[in-house]
Design a binder for these strands. Structure first.
Length: 573
RNA sequence: CGGGGUGUAGCUCAGCUUGGUAGAGCGCUUGCUUCGGGAGCAAGAGGUCGCAGGUUCGAAUCCUGUCACCCCGACCA
């Protein structure tokens, strides 16, 4: 492409409302433009990136035996009423009414539509298994769209749905999808991890997430190199400490702590480490009362784990300050296990310490030297906390590390939830009707673009992994006005590279060199060639690698081979 | 939805407290000089000050309403 013929505007200043780097750089590099909250236009170069991601996804889905379809974006309410999700899905569902006053929604996902397809098309077990996929625009009316493409309302997703006669067949396809996903992210040149995940609302037996690793990731994932354990922190099990609880050695005492409510304040005032404190969180229970949860002072509550307790109301709700005071006799911050009048469940780690500090159930006072059993009944034990770096891995292979990740893929085993609700059945070998068993597999295609930038950028702009870059190579022409020879050389190199099958961006604009360099860095194409007066006289162009900054001079006649060699070594790596 | 904030030129923002008729930088246009890391000088174009009411001789500025957007909380690819 010749840059002189494409309107391309970059921003020198960071737009005020762009919070995360990917959003800032997408806007600054002119790849996307925001139309309204959570809704974006893909500009020419941004679209090229999106298409490259789609192509890899499509190739790998096809390789894994999936078959592409394209379902409607607009879906009738009736379908959603069949599965009950018209009412349950809530405000995330963008509802539309047509001129006949009929209800529709803009699809946030396609389980209903694909199940409708399946129940019409699939009649015999002989047609199974089948895995349909599409790459399509979805709309979820997020309460708060943010972070640019990372959490847009309108976004592009690859979603696949597989249908099986039995669980064993589902397992096979699920495994194939896990492998396809790993191939996709590897081919895109992204550092990623697959983790065990909570299957959440969609339901079903097994679920795995794929995360692009990046500091700015919204999710925390726990992993261990020693045993290849990896799980979303929501799921990662905290093992009970192996050492038995020490015997009490201190006497129970009540101390005044008028200013201290938080663990940090209490620990500072009493000069004890937070891990020698026990904090109590009071949450709503299932029986209309409240339930107290005990954690070691330095640990944080894991909402997903707490919700799994039968006594705890879902969704997890902290009791209001008034409820806490009336139930325990103390305001929040001073609740403790000694003489506590509400049911108490303690995290394993909180149960494993002796002589600890805790609230005294009286405003302005804490206890020191508290011991389970001696001063309080021994509460029920449970895994309630988030794992922290250094915890033993549930896989037994060593210590856990915590990394941040951006969820870009999620695969589920759905079972027969939708096929039963919508009567998607096939005849089995015995001629009996059986509901199909389903799997579903999503990839956030547009989110991948943002995640790639979050993971790969520097102070000057984007540093695309080669396979996602809008171009293979960018060719900067310096001083074309003053040097016809330079223009001619650039043209010949452009033809040479294009002829070699490379996607080349030729910067033939009448612009100053500084502008071209700065904008090339912003755009982040991995390989840059500069054609200028200096080199052309010697028959040379200058090469620079965007990621490493390494520079090299290359003979004009050899540029095609040179770049191709770089691309193939990058692909092999 | 609850809490906080912002709407002034394409972008980043000043002006608002204390009403007097619109500003800067970047970007854009033209010319000249420049030209190896977002040039300099000069001349320009561009704004119903989010919208609607109100107060006032006079409103970007004060009041009321409204809309949009952004940030903090629970969901998700």
């Amino acid at each position: 492409m010749r840059l002189s013929q494409i309107p391309w505007n970059t921003l020198k200043e960071t737009p005020a409302d762009a919070e995360v780097v990917s959003h800032q750089l997408l806007l600054r590099a002119g790849l996307v433009r925001r139309l309204t909250a959570g809704i974006f236009t893909w500009m020419p170069f941004g679209l090229k990136v999106l298409r490259k991601v789609e192509a890899v996804v499509r190739e790998e889905m096809n390789r894994a035996g999936a078959v592409e379809v394209l379902m409607p974006a607009v879906q009738p309410a009736e379908l959603w009423q069949e599965t009950g999700r018209w009412d349950r899905y809530g405000d995330l569902l963008l509802r539309i009414r047509d001129r006949h006053e009929r209800d529709y929604c803009f699809g946030p996902t396609h389980e209903e539509v694909i199940t409708e397809v399946a129940r019409r098309e699939l009649r015999s077990y002989r047609q199974l298994p089948v895995n349909y996929y599409q790459i399509q625009t979805k709309f979820r009316d997020e309460i708060r769209p943010r972070f640019g493409l990372m959490r847009a309302r309108e976004f592009i997703m690859k979603d696949a749905y597989s249908f099986h006669l039995d669980q064993a067949s589902l397992e096979t396809t699920y495994q194939a999808m896990a492998e396809a996903y790993a191939r996709i992210f590897r081919r895109l040149g992204l550092r990623f991890r697959s983790v065990e995940a909570d299957s959440g609302e969609i339901g079903g037996a097994r679920s795995q997430e794929f995360h692009v690793l990046a500091e700015s990731g919204e999710d925390a994932i726990a992993w261990c190199d020693g045993d290849s354990y990896a799980a979303n922190i929501e799921m990662a099990a905290a093992l009970p400490p192996s050492a038995p609880r020490p015997d009490p050695s201190a006497a129970l005492a009540k101390v005044a702590t008028p200013k201290s409510r938080s663990i940090d304040e209490v620990a500072a005032e009493l000069k004890v480490a937070p891990e020698r404190c026990v904090k109590i969180l009071v949450v709503e229970g299932t029986d209309g009362g409240v339930v107290a949860l005990a954690l070691r002072g330095d640990h944080s509550l894991n909402a997903a784990k707490a919700q799994r307790l039968s006594q705890v109301k879902t969704p997890l709700t902290l009791a209001s300050p008034e409820r806490v005071t009336s139930a325990t006799g103390a305001p929040t911050g001073f609740v403790g296990p000694v003489g506590l009048r509400v049911p108490l469940i303690a995290d394993h780690s909180a149960l494993a310490i002796a002589d600890f500090v805790a609230g005294a159930n009286e405003a302005g006072f804490h206890h020191t030297g508290v011991n389970w059993g001696r001063d309080t009944p021994v509460p029920a034990a449970a895994d309630l906390r988030n794992v922290v770096a250094g915890d033993p891995s549930p896989g037994g292979g060593g210590a856990l590390a915590i990394a941040r990740g951006i969820e870009v893929g999620h695969i589920f085993q759905l079972g027969d939830k939708y096929s039963r609700a919508m009567n998607a059945v096939v005849l089995d070998e015995d001629g009996k009707e059986r509901p199909t068993i389903m799997g579903c597999y999503g990839i956030g295609v547009s989110r991948i673009v943002a995640a790639a930038i979050e993971q790969n950028h520097d102070a000057n702009g984007i540093v695309w992994p080669g396979p996602m870059s809008p171009f293979d190579v960018t060719l900067l022409v310096l001083n074309p006005k003053n040097a016809e020879a330079v223009t001619a050389a650039a043209e010949s190199i452009y033809v040479q590279l294009s002829g070699a099958g490379l996607d080349v961006l030729l910067d033939d604009r009448d612009a100053r060199p500084g502008v071209k360099f700065a904008e090339a860095d912003l755009l982040g194409v991995p390989h840059r060639l500069v054609v200028g007066d200096r080199g052309v006289r010697e028959g040379l162009v200058e090469y620079r690698n965007r990621a490493s900054g390494a520079e090299e001079k290359v003979a004009i006649d050899d540029v095609g081979k040179f770049i191709l060699a770089r691309l193939s070594t990058a692909a092999a790596a």
